[in-house]
Nucleic acid binder design. Structure first.
Lengths: 344, 344
DNA sequence: CTGAAAGCGCTTACAG
DNA sequence: CTGAAAGCGCTTACAG
């Protein structure tokens, strides 16, 4: 592969001059510029980004560590992150932690070894040592979706509290009184917050959230199946199951179907995180939709701000309820404005 | 951030010795090794992968350019690729082309500029110039899923012909005679092959595949919707629509639902590529499943073979039909062994 | 406007 | 077993 030396030789100038034209430095004569450009063209020369990074101490690369690529929510997040990063002149390297702390640590380490300029992370647990260390050491970093309390890093996330309240209002209106939740890992903020929001919303209706109606999941489908089976085995099964993410809702659907039961007649279902397929499931699933694309973009902007020496603030965006049929047929709509009845 | 010099100073040895212990070179005295390790620990030193890459001319990184991350098939492929690569000691950088040739070219260029050791690609079109050039220049490369004819690069893919035959047999047995297909872009091999396989299978039953039953899609949901609407507007709409990927099937479902029609009563639906949600759609969708994980792993092995100077051969794996209810209730099963009746 | 030179952080013959 | 030195491909003060 041709190097800058080859180009310099071909153009009859020094490598410094070649470098200058490549980087758009103004003080280069037109003649030199033309000859360099011609040489670049003739040789099919492409600058070696590795060498440039070593020299400039910047890689123009962002690392993104997500909890699970197979989760459509994170896939969409990753996509919007890459898009915004590209618009800002950065590449992104994705590390998929698969909800496993060791894997998360592996990716954080690898990314840091590659000297990425900044790190975007949705932590799988309470805090990988390597990650905490990087944050302390001043590596530009921002949390997206999930975060770690007590770490001084901006957080870009959505607040689902109002949407959960809307959901509970919807459920209550339909006559449901025994509401259960499939929670995410307690070590994650989203794992806790969604349970808290749910409990709080239930409280407003004088409804309890007993321990046996809180199933411990891990944001993966299989745990949703397992927890739902447990609910169905209860002497008094719940009227509705609220899954804290879309994959656990999928598992819940598996469990209900395996028992030969029907949603919503036998048991209602709602999910946190909306995905396109929820329109076509049997029945269409009522869900809380996050502004995923906007979250990804905001997170990148905050991170790039940090990378480039600007402040980079936290952002919180509201989620919203999308009512479909999985909790029962609603009567005439008396819901607040924030409740959108899906038209599909 | 501590550099190798700092470690050398701390340990009281030369940087050469530090490098040797870091790389497991045998000729280092035990004492030196201990002091270096202690210094590494004390300083929290991590080797700079950028510098190492520049020096060794290898990045231990593979590039993966896929057509669309939001397509669950490619998400799963990407995941298995990363998994196998990691097992083999490589990282992977994913570039999402979004089915857009310019974006594909952008990613190929970026990846090459970063001097990845090898490139895995599922081409969006007939051949990005940069990609063809890289292949010609001898960059280790392998095609996965989709490929470009006439380019001397191993291909790892699945052959869906037998499964398509099984599908057509299934459809014919159910009494369907007017079969239509939503094709992928003609510029992609999978876009063409699936139509060819379908036509061939129809031919075996003396059924035609008229031009108006071939809709031109682009593997994205919206095109599936559009094409299906066209089919429904035909004076003689088809009995069944076969979508060449899962996203176009989603679009087809949208279109059917928008008309207030029912699957399979009004029109049957089948899809290439199986996804978990097809079990829970209304109705569950009959699909052709690729051995996606195995494809990803095989592709990585072939690529790493090339990278490390071994041969690296092409691999073709069979796809299989998974019968569900979207084409109608089957009678007693008389299908060949390769036809699996899904139990869900 | 231009070039010679230093240096980014490593690895690796080479000599001892 | 060990270190001094060269060099990977760039960028960038510095001097002219």
């Amino acid at each position: 592969m041709a190097s800058i030396k080859d180009v310099a030789a071909e153009a009859g100038v020094s490598v410094a001059t070649v470098s200058r034209v490549l980087n758009g430095h103004p003080s280069v004569s037109e003649g030199a510029r033309d000859r360099v450009l011609a040489a670049v063209e003739a040789l099919g020369y492409r600058p070696n980004a590795v060498a440039r990074s070593l020299r400039t101490d910047q890689t123009r690369t962002l690392g993104l560590v997500i909890s699970d690529v197979l989760n459509p929510y994170f896939t969409e997040l990753a996509r919007s992150v890459e898009e915004e990063a590209r618009a800002l002149g950065y590449s992104v390297i994705i590390g998929n932690a698969d909800e496993r702390p060791e894997l998360q640590d592996h990716h954080v380490t690898t990314l840091l070894d590659r000297r990425i300029d900044g790190l975007l992370v949705s932590p799988t647990d309470g805090g990988s040592p390597r990650m905490l260390e990087a944050a302390r050491a001043g590596t530009p970093m921002v949390f997206v979706d999930r975060w770690i309390p007590g770490v001084d890093v901006p957080v870009v996330r959505s607040d689902g509290r109002a949407a959960v309240r809307d959901l509970v209002a919807h459920l209550h209106r339909l006559g449901h009184r025994r509401l259960a939740i499939i929670a995410g890992p307690a070590a994650t903020t989203t794992g806790q917050e969604r349970v808290d929001a749910f409990r709080e919303a239930l409280g407003a209706y004088g409804l309890p959230l007993p321990g046996h109606y809180i199933g411990q999941g891990d944001f993966q489908a299989e745990s949703g199946r397992r927890v739902t089976e447990g609910f169905l085995d209860l002497p008094e099964p719940p009227d509705v199951v609220f899954a804290a993410d879309n994959l656990m809702a999928l598992g819940a659907l598996d469990a209900v179907r395996a028992r030969g039961l029907r949603v919503p007649e036998d048991i209602a279902l709602a999910a946190f995180d909306d995905i396109r397929w929820f329109v076509h499931t049997d029945p269409p699933v009522t869900a809380i939709a996050q502004p995923t694309g906007e979250l990804g973009r905001a997170a990148v902007r905050a991170l790039v701000d940090r990378v480039e020496g600007r402040a980079g603030a936290s952002v919180t965006l509201p989620a919203r309820l999308v009512v479909r049929r999985s909790c029962g047929e609603p009567g005439p709509d008396r819901s607040p404005n924030s409740v959108r009845r899906s038209t599909t």
